[in-house]
Simulated scan of single mutants.
Amino acid sequence: MGRCTFRNLGLLQVIKGRCKIPVFVLIRPRGGDFRYSDLEIQVMRQDIQIFKAHKADGFVIGALSSTAIINFPRQLIVKYSTVRCMSIFLAAFDMCQDPFIAMETIICLGFERILTSGQESSVLEGAPLIRSLVEKAHNRIIIMPGGGINDRNLERILKETNAEEFHCSARSSKNSEMQYQKSSVYMGGVLRAPEFITKSTDAGMVQRMKEMLDKR
């Protein structure tokens, strides 16, 4: 699932033109918490309509009340036959008060998947809760672990959580191809990645992880 905001509409179009797999778009107007204002909800609704018109297969989205209870605005529900059910965004679920009540609410809303690190900083730490969610879901919704997964720990995570799907970035770093590099200029804040190091999906890692999943 790639992160596509409105300014990355071109990214969605290029991916759809090159890939046959479903492409889900993250709908999130800002970072921080998941309690959105009426104006932010309007922005999210517009994003959904725009990306749907450009053939998005589904959406990754989530919202909470001020007391960290699942609070999904009705106007954001997608009810189009040409668009699959939405998935809820990882951190929104992991920040809610009661994960089991939240799961039942999400099921009632018609979501297809829940992305979760088990309400911990990583899936390895949250594995016991994820396994409990998988058991209590009874195949009514897909529980998808995500958070710190790589080709070194995937087998352990699949075994400990009993999950059938997983989410990861599978990224690796590479040096920039810029021949001239001005090291005194930075495009970010104080906490920043090096300007001349880029990160991208590692095809080899993706293949290794797919093979691990297929062997189950």
Rank of each mutant, 00 (worst) to 15 (best):
Met1Arg: 01
Thr5Trp: 12
Arg7Ser: 15
Leu9Arg: 09
Leu9Ile: 15
Leu9Asn: 08
Gly10Lys: 12
Gly10Met: 11
Leu12Tyr: 09
Gln13Gly: 05
Val14Met: 06
Ile15Met: 13
Arg18Ser: 13
Arg18Trp: 08
Lys20Thr: 09
Lys20Met: 08
Pro22Ser: 07
Pro22Tyr: 07
Phe24Ser: 00
Leu26Phe: 03
Ile27Arg: 02
Ile27Gly: 03
Ile27Leu: 08
Pro29Thr: 08
Pro29Ser: 10
Pro29Gln: 09
Gly32Ile: 03
Asp33Gln: 02
Phe34Lys: 03
Tyr36Val: 04
Ser37Phe: 07
Glu40Thr: 05
Ile41Val: 15
Ile41Phe: 07
Val43Ile: 15
Gln46Arg: 13
Ile50Ala: 14
Lys52Cys: 08
Lys52Ala: 13
His54Trp: 13
Ala56Ile: 06
Phe59Gly: 01
Phe59Ala: 01
Val60Gln: 02
Val60Thr: 03
Gly62Ser: 06
Leu64Ile: 02
Leu64Ala: 04
Leu64His: 02
Ser65Trp: 08
Ser66Gln: 11
Thr67Phe: 01
Thr67Asn: 09
Thr67Lys: 07
Ala68Pro: 00
Ala68Lys: 10
Phe72Cys: 01
Pro73Tyr: 04
Pro73Gln: 03
Pro73Asp: 06
Gln75Thr: 06
Ile77Cys: 03
Tyr80Ser: 15
Ser81Phe: 00
Ser81Val: 00
Thr82Cys: 05
Arg84Glu: 03
Arg84Ile: 00
Cys85Ser: 07
Cys85Phe: 00
Ile88Gly: 00
Ile88Ala: 01
Ile88Cys: 01
Leu90His: 10
Ala91Lys: 05
Phe93Arg: 01
Asp94Ser: 02
Asp94His: 04
Cys96Ile: 03
Gln97Phe: 04
Phe100Cys: 02
Ile101Ser: 12
Ile101Val: 14
Ala102His: 07
Met103Val: 01
Met103Asn: 02
Met103Ser: 02
Glu104Met: 04
Ile114Cys: 02
Ile114Gln: 00
Ile114Arg: 00
Leu115Ser: 02
Ser117Tyr: 06
Leu124Glu: 10
Glu135Asp: 10
His138Val: 09
His138Ala: 14
His138Asp: 14
Asn139Glu: 15
Asn139Trp: 08
Met144Val: 05
Pro145Ile: 04
Pro145Thr: 04
Pro145Tyr: 05
Gly146Cys: 06
Gly146Phe: 07
Gly146Gln: 06
Gly148Ser: 11
Asn150Arg: 07
Asp151His: 15
Arg152Leu: 08
Arg152Thr: 06
Asn153Leu: 09
Leu154Ile: 10
Leu154Thr: 04
Ile157Thr: 08
Lys159Ala: 15
Glu160Asn: 12
Glu165Cys: 06
Glu165Asn: 05
Phe166Leu: 05
His167Ala: 12
Cys168Tyr: 02
Ser169Ala: 07
Ala170Glu: 11
Ala170Met: 14
Ser173Leu: 08
Ser176Ala: 13
Glu177Arg: 09
Glu177Lys: 11
Met178Ser: 12
Gln181His: 07
Gln181Lys: 15
Lys182Thr: 09
Ser183Trp: 10
Tyr186Asn: 07
Met187Ile: 04
Met187Gln: 10
Val190Lys: 10
Arg192Lys: 13
Ala193Pro: 04
Glu195Met: 03
Glu195Ala: 07
Lys199Ala: 09
Asp202Tyr: 06
Ala203Arg: 14
Gly204Met: 14
Val206His: 12
Arg208Trp: 13
Met209Lys: 11
Glu211Met: 14
Asp214Cys: 10
